[in-house]
Design a protein around this nucleic acid. Structure first.
Lengths: 258, 258
DNA sequence: CGGACTGTTGATCAAGGTCAACCTCTGTGG
DNA sequence: CCACAGAGGTTGACCTTGATCAACAGTCCG
């Protein structure tokens, strides 16, 4: 599971989007070329930069190539909920193709390399290849599953479980794109951002992290996080299924190829 | 905004799904016929019935024609988070078309009339008409926006604001499908279910509702809820944008019709 | 009239928030 | 090389929100 796709063709540089979509649907060379074209114009920005803001009109989605970003919603009095973190290969947010305004803001966490993808480009692709259409829909569904699990964690789990859940989620997603191994991962967010993702104050987040450390589940050193006891962490987290990538059934793939 | 589509063709019975998708994309008679066919076989079940369970394999989504349902995730010790309520016209959950297991359970709240829609049917439709594909994607995006807003409410709002948000959301959605007017709506859920949606205990939910009543925002009598002060309620809620239906831009619709 | 179900209220308790001090780093300029 | 500043993280003391436990009230049945 860990970075299998990366080692598949080590000599050939593939965009993280292709790597990701390929985990669920067989892509033809033509599909791959079309997807590569989506990311041909690369933009860069510094960490902390805002990529777009909630309620503003938008016509393009952001395709992340390299670096971290996060999406959040901030209330008028400053309370902020981080909706999720965006990793290389994530298309944020595809819903721009079907709605005209963002429901949230997006901000770079680290220096970022990204492309802007216009709605027309993706809808043209969909028209030409329903297989690519399904792949995008699938990516969107995966995103939705993550948000749903996040809602359950924030709504019904204790601070301890919730933080464990959040880190488990990131670890799993990073392993899927080959950016983490079984030992741990790099996570370049400050505790204020993590707290806003968990729906906690940063003070209580700090205490919770110390407790996870004290009890031997995970350890943080700077931006490096290591998983000390994956088994107990998994038990704590409970909902891990929504994070799995399920390839499209062959039956359906064949139908889409006709 | 209130039930405009319903009064448009009062003599002709249209499925709630068609009414809903039509608000965002111009549907041809052929599209409408194809969508009607999706709901041709009707099933019925009693309130309280479980329609499907989390982690179980599924190949069909549930299209609600009449009645209420809700989707939830229950942890091993019984803590339950209601993810959202399903109303007539909702396709729950379309992600079954792209993932093989449900990430949550679905349960009827009232007696329910519904159809089962297999993945193949919708993917065939998508292949034949990218316009219908976009419409489904859009419906999914709308669902996602609701879940995101729910996450913000549960993560960062007080109990008072959160309950106000939840009721505002339902009121808005019901008005969109012509099942509520400016005065209020029918909501057939007990306080235990509402509490699990808000991420509160039912005791605290009861207190919160009494306070909303005492302060003149809304009043409940049995299953009938009336909005007493929509303005103040709206101020309290803050995030209302994610709930709006944005029709697909004409530009994009034209491209999809070719 | 009794029982089940749903909602309300009061009393008490715990999880987590808030405020404030302090502690490391790390980078910077004298 | 040291002094200092600033950012990010940690800890303690105290307070608030909402959970828990328990009793009771209304309603809808039989």
């Amino acid at each position: 599971m860990t970075g299998r796709q990366l080692s598949e063709k080590p000599s050939q540089l593939r965009s993280p989007l292709v790597l990701k979509l390929r985990t669920m649907v067989e892509l033809t060379p033509g599909d791959v070329a079309a997807l590569d074209a989506l990311g041909s114009v690369r933009h860069h920005c510094a960490g902390g930069q805002t990529l777009f803001e909630a309620d503003k009109r938008r016509t393009a989605a952001v395709l992340v190539h390299d670096g971290w970003a996060f999406r959040h919603r901030t209330l008028s009095d400053g309370r902020r909920q981080v909706i999720d973190f965006d990793l290389p290969g994530d298309l944020c947010d595809p819903t721009v193709f079907v709605t005209s305004r963002a429901g949230f803001s997006m901000q770079a966490l680290t220096a970022l390399s990204y492309s802007l993808v216009r709605a027309e480009e993706v809808l043209d692709l969909m028209t030409r290849s329903p297989r690519i259409g399904a792949a995008f829909w699938w990516a969107d569904a995966h995103q939705e599953a993550i948000t749903r699990a996040h809602l359950v964690a924030v709504g019904r789990m204790s601070a301890y479980e919730r933080v464990a859940y959040l880190l488990w989620e990131l670890w799993t997603r990073l392993r899927m794109i080959g950016l983490a191994d079984g030992a741990g991962f790099e996570f370049p967010a400050g505790q204020d951002v993590i707290a806003d993702a968990a729906g906690l104050s940063y003070v209580h987040l700090s205490r919770t992290l110390r407790r996870l450390d004290r009890e031997g589940l995970l350890r943080r050193a700077g931006r490096n996080w290591r998983i000390l006891d994956a088994g107990r962490l998994h038990d704590l987290v409970q909902i891990t299924d929504g994070l799995q990538l399920n390839p499209l059934a062959r039956r359906i793939q064949e139908r889409l190829s006709r």
